[in-house]
Design a protein around this nucleic acid. Sequence first.
DNA 1: TTAATAAAGGACTTATTTATCCGTTATTTG
DNA 2: CAAATAACGGATAAATAAGTCCTTTATTAA
Lengths: 144, 144
Amino acid sequence: MFSKACEYAIRAVIYICHQSKNGERVGLKEIAKRTDSPEAFMAKILQKLVKNGIVSSLKGPTGGFVLDKEQQEKIRLVDIVYAIDGDNVFNGCGLGLRECSEEQPCPIHDKFKNIRNGLSKMLHQTTIHDLAEGLSTGTSYLRI
Amino acid sequence: MFSKACEYAIRAVIYICHQSKNGERVGLKEIAKRTDSPEAFMAKILQKLVKNGIVSSLKGPTGGFVLDKEQQEKIRLVDIVYAIDGDNVFNGCGLGLRECSEEQPCPIHDKFKNIRNGLSKMLHQTTIHDLAEGLSTGTSYLRI
DNA sequence: TTAATAAAGGACTTATTTATCCGTTATTTG
DNA sequence: CAAATAACGGATAAATAAGTCCTTTATTAA
Ligand code: FES
Ligand code: FES
């Protein structure tokens, strides 16, 4: 469904949000450990997230990654998926035709569109804030 | 969503079904051309489909690929996806955790499960026979 | 029974994704 | 200012997916 990079990205942003609510800034090492992802790869992903304004970062000692108040409230799953995986999830043809269109639909177009729209709706509706709740209450996990 | 191989596979089976209804057997070249897919790669995919009993094949002159009556009626999208991409689409965690479970769910588990179940239901309900109809009526396409 | 045909199958190449390494830059603290 | 720290950024490596090539096997029909 999502690329590995995107999966890691979502895990990371949720974790950073969780910690940001406690007013804590988190470093790469910690993020990689808590999300069970390869550190160097996660570094690349975080760079991309920073460039896309999804997370904020600070260099130097006491530096690290953080979600400011606005980011905590505004960032949705869709923003992360779009930043990392692009728009194929939202617009791409289920059978890989060059373009998904109503004019020349593939055989699964109608049925696939339903699924894709459902996914899109879910990604738009779900904020990182919401997801981070589960971590706080101990009802959801980012590893194993 | 699906691998390239799986996309090609679905296209191929729909096309073969379409032709089988006209009592026509189709060769690799024709399948590759009509589904706009690389011939040698399609050859590999068809081998796998034959091994999985999804399509039938005959060697030699007048040979080719065909869906017998039973296959035309029985084969669903789920059979193709499962044969080519395995069960990750149906059981895998949306955030790539080693296992999707109710006991230790990831933060998007509930929302993701809905989407995944919807997709699974659609794949189970949709027969190739149904999809091939669109080709006959000229309301759906396998290329462009 | 031989030549032609088409799928089967193994080995290989290419492209993309995933992942790592290491020097640079910015920031903090002593 | 100097030393330590942590993100940034470019280059590279490993793993997987996508795609190709070529020989073998089975079948048909002349
Ligand atoms: S054309 Fe294939 S999903 Fe729309
Ligand atoms: S645990 Fe992630 S989708 Fe179920």
